[in-house]
Design a protein around this nucleic acid. Sequence first.
DNA 1: GATGTTATTGTCCCTTACAC
DNA 2: GTGTAAGGGACAATAACATC
Length: 360
Amino acid sequence: MRSNNIKKASIDLDDLVYVKANKVNKKQFLLKGDILITASTGSIKIIGKNAFCEENINASFGAFCKVVRAKNVHSSYLKHLFQSPQYFSYIQNVVNGSNINNIKNEHINNFKIPLPSPEIQNKIAQILDDAAALRNKTELLIKEYDVLAQSIFLDMFGDPVTNKFRFPKGTIRDLVKEAKYGTSEKAGDEGQYQYLRMNNLTYAGYMDYSSMKYVNIPDKDLHKYLVEKGDLLFNRTNSKDLVGKTSIFDSSEPMVIAGYLIRVRFNQKANPFFVRAYLNSKYGKLVLRNMCKSIVGMANINAQELQNIMILHPPIELQNQFAEKIALIEKQKELAKQELKESEDLFNCLLQKAFKGELV
DNA sequence: GATGTTATTGTCCCTTACAC
DNA sequence: GTGTAAGGGACAATAACATC
C-alpha cells in the first residue's frame, strides 16, 4: 500500500505492489477503522491526504505512509476530522523537507482535536456520515449519466465492430467541412483570449475549463484559431494513452486553441456529438491507440490521419436524435453537479462546526 | 534489526520551440 | 501543416541515512 493507493478519502486496491512475506510485520496490516496517511511525497498538495479503511485489508503500508488507529475515540468521528480543512491547514504548516515533503509521527501526534463525550462523538459521526452519503450518492449519479450516454449510443447505433444496423461506412473525411490546427503562440497568464490546451480536454470527452491560460491573437488571424460552440476538438499530440482526446467546445466565451489541438467542423452529414461518442467509445479509443505514431514517448495523429478513420454513417436525423438525448442528459448532469456542489458545501460546513465543537 | 525520516532518481503529462 | 526534441512540473519509486 503506497501513497498513490490513497484516493479522495478512499483506498484504491487496483494498483498494489508486493513485498516478500518475511519483510512484513503483521502490525503493518491494515485493520478496519485505520486511517492511512501519505507521509512523504514530492507534492505539497498530496502530503497528508488520507483514507479510512472500511474493512480489514490484506495489505501492509509502506514507509511513505502512516496509520492512525483509533483508541478511546469513535473511529468514524476521527475519520471525518482527518478530512477537515483544519487538518489539512495544520499539515501545510508542519510539513518539512527540501524537494520532498515529509510529515513525522510527532506531527500526527500533535494534531489537536476536540474530544466530546462518546455520545456526542457518535451523534456527530452520524450527522457527518449522513451528509457524506448524500454527497456520494450525487457523485454516483453523475457517473451513471455517463454510463447512460454510452448505453444510448450502443442502443441507437450498435457496436461499431458488428454494425448490426447495417449503416453505411465511410471515412471521417466524408463528414468534415474543415479541420484546422491551432496557433503555436506561447501560453501566458495574461492575454486577450482564453487559450485551450490539451489538459482542457478530458479523457472521457468533456471540456474542463478549470485551468486556463491566455494568448493574444491579431484580428486578421483570429478566424483560424477561434472556436465556436459545437466545434469538435481533437488532441493530436500527447502520450500514447491520451492522444486522440476528443471533446466538443460548449462555451459561449471566445477562446482559441493551441497547435496540438485540431478544430473540426462538420458538413450536413454529421452531428459532432455522434462523432465524439464514436471516438470516445471503447472501439474508438482502440482505433486511436493502434493508429498513433509513437516516437520518443510522444504520440501523434495528424489531421489527415484523423480524417482517414473509418466511421459509421448513420442518417443525420438519427444522429440529431442522439444529440438531443445527450443534451438532455448533459442538462440533468449539470443539475446533479450543482447539487454535488451544494452537498459538498454543506458537508464542509458541518465539518467545520464539528471541529469547533459547535455541531451538537 | 526494525522503524522512521529525508534525499535522489525515474516516469508521465504537458508545454515550448523549432525544423522541415 | 506536421513531427518531434527538449525541458519543466507533478508525482511516484527507490535508496540512503537516522533513530529506536
